[in-house]
């Protein structure tokens, strides 16, 4: 019987990551979509970097950053007792950074697709920027929010390079599905590789099917 623990761990990691990204992404993308400051542009570039960088490069820098010898690493460990290297918590943080553009990109285009005069109408009707965001902007970009959630979920599912660098290969902690597949192929255990690969494929496929189905119903 094949141990599916790593699969559940991967799903748990992806769920937590995409939910955190939703909370982080909504204000972050709001700023990037509407601010005219040059800093917003720089921020847009920085948050897009994980998309183009080789995951090993990102993983390498995170490894340095999370290590006990770095200022951040020692601060987190001394202050909160939080260790990010080779732990599940560290994987969550790394995945949030790795999948950030998968959330911010759909959200930014979602924000920009909401007609300006809906926002202005809300202001002239006496509503603050926050209330306008909650009651007018977000409800009118539901499909972008869903795209962001599903893309960051599926993107995290297949994460490999970053995990290998900062997570290592600890069972029940950091050994995710993609690493199990790699290990299995190395050990010529094709059965395990097949099962895990098929599981990831189906999970990604049906997440996307759900996304397209829901979006279509919203538009029709």
């Amino acid at each position: 019987m094949i141990d599916l623990g790593a699969l559940w761990l991967t799903i748990k990691l992806s769920l937590i990551t995409s939910l955190i990204l939703l909370v982080v992404g909504i204000p972050l993308a709001y700023y990037m979509a509407y601010s005219k400051s040059p800093f917003a542009l720089i921020l847009e570039v920085i948050t897009t970097l994980p998309l183009v960088l080789p995951p090993t490069v990102l993983g390498f820098y995170l490894l340095i950053l999370f290590s006990r010898n770095s200022p951040l690493g020692s601060l987190l460990e001394n202050l909160l007792g939080l260790r990010l290297l080779f732990t599940f918590e560290g994987l969550v943080v790394a995945s949030v950074i790795y999948s950030l553009p998968m959330m911010t990109h759909p959200l930014i285009s979602g924000y920009r697709s909401v007609p300006k005069n809906l926002i202005e109408a809300s202001w002239t009707l006496g509503k603050s920027k926050l209330e306008t965001l909650i009651r007018v902007i977000l409800p009118n970009m539901k499909s972008s929010i869903l795209v962001g959630l599903v893309l960051s979920f599926t993107h995290t599912l297949g994460e490999f390079g970053v995990v290998l660098m900062v997570g290592g290969n600890i069972e029940g902690q950091t050994r995710v599905a993609s690493i199990v597949i790699y290990n299995a192929v190395e050990a010529i255990d094709y059965k395990t590789a097949h099962i895990y690969s098929a599981a990831l494929l189906l999970l990604s496929f049906f997440s996307l099917v759900a996304l397209y189905l829901i979006n279509r119903r919203w538009f029709l």
């Binding site: 109408a121 002239t124 006496g126």
Partner: peptide, 27 residues
Amino acid sequence: QKRQVGFVFQDYALFPNMSLLENVMYG
């Protein structure tokens, strides 16, 4: 928000996510 104006936009700018009644009650 602090100016009490009633602004009617050229393309009306009704909120698509709200019913007509909710639109009227919004402000």
